[in-house]
């Protein structure tokens, strides 16, 4: 077992210990793991299975059902752009195309689609590395991306 896997295992065990007496603990445990490591590592289902007395299939089912849980390590930067109706009405479709092309091939960036950030009166709405941004335009996007790179 290498050190990364060892670290992951200890995080998974820690999460399970912390929440094991909480009824319906699986989602809080998975959130804890993802918030700590950045994603849900491969061995999660088999590690949690005996502790929670759930089958690996049940746990795997939950991990893969929810859009929020990621099974691969995140890129250095994440840009989520809202695709829902209120942002469509403000031009998110063309903006999505633009930003996807802009960042294509840049492995530091992961562009993902999100469905409503609750900023529907000030769209198009985006989230860059956890920061919410309203009234997105292509010029502003370029600046925000540049800022995010500099702050990294």
């Amino acid at each position: 077992m290498d050190t990364v896997e060892f670290h992951h295992e200890s995080v998974i065990r820690q999460a399970a210990q912390r929440y094991r007496d909480v009824p319906g603990a699986l989602l809080p445990i998975l959130h804890h793991i993802q918030d700590t490591i950045g994603f849900i590592p491969n061995q999660t289902a088999s590690e949690l299975s005996p502790i929670l007395n759930l089958s690996r299939a049940e746990i795997h089912g939950v991990i893969t059902y929810y859009h929020h849980f990621k099974q691969t390590p995140p890129a250095k930067h994440t840009l989520a752009i809202c695709q829902a109706e209120a942002c469509q009405a403000r031009g998110c479709r063309s903006l999505t195309k633009e930003v996807t092309e802009m960042l294509a091939g840049d492995h530091d960036w992961h562009v993902e689609h999100t469905y409503c950030l609750g900023l529907c009166a000030t769209g198009p709405a985006i989230e860059i590395d956890g920061q919410l941004k309203a009234h997105a335009t292509s010029e502003k996007l370029q600046k925000w991306i540049k800022d995010a790179k500099e702050n990294a």
Partner: peptide
Amino acid sequence: AGSYVCGEETALLESLEG
């Protein structure tokens, strides 16, 4: 955890149950 259907009350209860 990002599932629209969980806004339906019984799906939400399932989700709370883990």
